[in-house]
Design a protein around this nucleic acid. Structure first.
Ligand SMILES: Nc1nc2c(ncn2[C@H]2C[C@H](O)[C@@H](COP(=O)(O)OP(=O)(O)OP(=O)(O)O)O2)c(=O)[nH]1
Ligand SMILES: [Mg+2]
Ligand SMILES: [Mg+2]
Ligand SMILES: [Zn+2]
Length: 584
DNA sequence: GCCGTTTTCGGCCCGACTGTTTTCAGTCG
């Protein structure tokens, strides 16, 4: 049972509780448990098997939910959900996904009109059947019908790299308006999450109404769902949502903090503020003397901070937290203890240790890759084409590899300011053996190993396969370890703990593959890897010279995984790197 | 359901926008 599956069960319980009960906080406890389980790099299945006290270990998981987790791990299901869903149909969950239709509305249409599916809701909305329920008029009826269309057209969350293109467009558009003073892309985009659900943008302006008008008439917008004095929400022609918030310059910091999120980070910060007799919102920090309610406290004379983010964190006795860490996964405690990691940054990167060339499935020659790397300011790169079992890529056998080695030797004579390492991405076969023999691989400076076939073996078999490939072999880097393709292919199940242990022992680095649709390892597992002191290589796996620029996406995820320069072998100088690769 | 410099029940983040409401509930960020 994977963490995601456990989390999905709790999410269902939370929604059914919201529909059927009036206690919001009961539902929230389940929702919060789902978030904790989903965001943990540790396998809850293994923790249950190891009899770890989950309630003790995780704030937000108590006796009740910890028992639920045990039950799910041991039986594969949760009786509480089964009982609940006999009373409250599971299909109602789908209806809450329609924008504008929440648990209260679902409860009423279910109880009063016996509607339990989206199709039934559509029929009822079309023939006026919702009007008799009460609280639903002509406009809501129309909104529901439009909401159903959007629900049916809903695609996946966008890759961060695709969101970049939209953000650039929006940036150009906002720059053209003189009334806009400052603006910033925020939300999950600023936190550099691997996928984003929408684009959130924060603006300060001399004239809010004019800027609102300007934004809502952007030619990429298909429909404006709402637009008030300070915020608007619109859907673009490509179905992607953009949320705008306008704020006074004085509160830019507080608003930046709010709108960057995450929601869980915000809630945690705001709770801490209350403990310190403050109240925190997007309008700033306000003093709140005991006995005074939050709403009374929010007056001009009580305002004490909000110009920038740092002064708010400082007031709460914390260090400023980089947006990538703001997921409520321990960063708040670390910040209070002044123990935040010094996150890896692009200017610390010295080279790129995976790329393909026209020797196999890359588009560019070795020389073209070298020239591009020099432009990026790198001190070294590794040429790592595919091995022979990857026949469709023109994978190399020993003879072809020997030729490439000669070529690299001669290029190293020409390009003195960069070191070109001889490498290969060697396929791991089904039985865990490598595609080329050790005697061949020993000719190389750096050996990457990766799985490309049989991605869905049972977890223990897959784990043993990987371990066999890296334990006592010439392998230096385990590349794209889970083989996930975002929105297309689930990650292979492997036991990370065992692999991290063996990798650490064998001086094998784990890759953070920077291809925007891979980002593998992901942030959660990168954070986990740190506990095993295993080293990381952030590689672009470029198949064209332009893709060498994907490095930043790898950096983004490494930062989200709390990774520091000392963990990243391609942020080291060439001497230290070579020593690591020699495994001495 | 979870939590506690209130050890045991009462509070749990805070605000904008919309529609149908005549004073605010519901939904969303
Ligand atoms: N305080 C508070 N802030 C919230 C709440 N919901 C959202 N926010 C803030 C934090 C979010 O990062 C930010 C943008 O909201 P989004 O729904 O777009 O979420 P986010 O961008 O984090 O993720 P996404 O990829 O869009 O799903 O607004 C909330 O319930 N309370
Ligand atoms: Mg967002
Ligand atoms: Mg949003
Ligand atoms: Zn590859």
């Amino acid at each position: 049972m994977q963490n995601n599956e456990i989390a999905a069960i709790f999410d269902k319980v939370a929604i059914l509780l919201r529909i059927s009960e009036d206690n919001e906080f009961h539902a929230r406890a389940y929702e919060n448990a789902a978030r904790i389980v989903r965001g943990s790099g540790e396998s809850f299945t293994q923790m249950v098997e190891g009899e770890i006290d989950l309630a003790e270990k995780y704030r937000g998981i108590g006796k009740g939910i910890s028992d639920h987790i045990k039950e799910i791990v041991q039986t594969g299901k949760l009786k509480k959900l089964e009982k609940l869903s006999q009373k409250v149909p599971l299909t109602l969950i789908e209806i809450t996904k329609i924008r504008g239709v929440g648990p209260k509305t679902v409860n009423r249409i279910w109880k009063k009109a016996d509607i339990t599916t989206v199709d039934q809701l559509e029929t009822a909305a079309k023939n006026g059947g919702l009007r008799t329920i009460g609280g639903i008029g002509k406009k809501t009826e129309q909104n529901i019908l439009e909401g159903i269309q959007k629900y049916r057209n809903w695609k996946n969350r966008l890759l961060l790299s695709d969101a970049d293109a939209i953000a650039e467009d929006l940036t150009e558009f906002l720059k053209r308006n003189a009334k806009i003073q400052q603006f910033e892309m925020v939300g999950s985009y600023r936190r550099r999450k691997d996928t984003v659900g929408d684009l959130d943008v924060l603006v300060t302006a001399t004239s809010a109404p004019e800027v609102m008008k300007y934004f809502t008439t952007w030619n990429r917008i298909e429909k404006v769902d709402s637009a008030g004095k300070t915020k608007a929400s619109a859907v673009l022609k490509n179905n992607f949502r953009v949320d705008l918030r306008i704020i006074e310059p004085k509160n830019f910091g507080a608003a930046l903090l709010y709108f960057t999120g995450s929601k869980a980070h915000n809630i945690h910060l705001r709770s801490l503020a209350l403990v310190e007799n403050f109240t925190l919102s997007e309008y700033g920090v306000f003093k709140k003397p005991t006995g005074i309610s939050s709403s009374e406290a929010r007056k001009e004379e009580n305002w004490i901070a909000g110009r920038d983010e740092a002064e708010i964190y400082t007031l709460l006795d914390m260090d400023w937290i980089p947006p990538e860490l703001r997921e409520d996964r321990g960063e708040i405690t670390a910040s209070k203890n002044h123990a935040l990691p010094k996150l890896i940054s692009f200017d610390q990167i010295q080279g790129d240790l995976q790329m393909h060339t026209s020797y196999t499935d890359g588009n560019n020659t070795i020389e073209e890759m070298i020239q591009q790397a020099i432009e990026l300011g790198y001190a070294y790169i590794a040429i790592t084409d595919h091995s022979k079992s990857m026949a469709m890529t023109g994978g190399m056998d020993e003879r072809k590899l020997d030729k490439q080695i000669q070529k690299i030797d001669s290029l190293n004579e020409i390009y003195k300011n960069i070191t070109v390492l001889k490498g290969m991405e060697v396929d791991i076969k089904k039985d865990g053996t490598l595609d080329l023999s050790n005697s061949v691989l020993d000719k190389l400076d750096v050996v990457l190993a990766s799985i490309h076939t049989h991605l869905t073996l049972p977890i223990s078999e897959q784990t043993q396969r990987v371990i066999k490939a890296i334990d006592g072999t010439p392998v230096n880097i385990l590349s794209h370890p889970t083989n996930r393709i975002i929105n297309e292919r689930n990650p292979s199940e492997i036991e990370f703990e065992k692999i991290f242990e063996v990798a650490q022992k064998n001086q094998v680095a784990i890759e953070c593959n920077a291809q925007p649709h891979r980002l593998d390892l992901n942030a959660i597992n990168l954070k986990r890897s740190k506990e095993y002191k295993v080293k990381i290589a952030i590689n672009t796996d470029a198949h064209t010279r332009g893709q060498l620029r994907y490095m930043k996406y790898g950096i983004n995820q490494a930062r989200r995984g709390w990774i520091e320069s000392q963990d990243v072998i391609n942020s080291w100088d060439i001497a230290k790197l070579k020593q690591f690769l020699r495994k001495k």
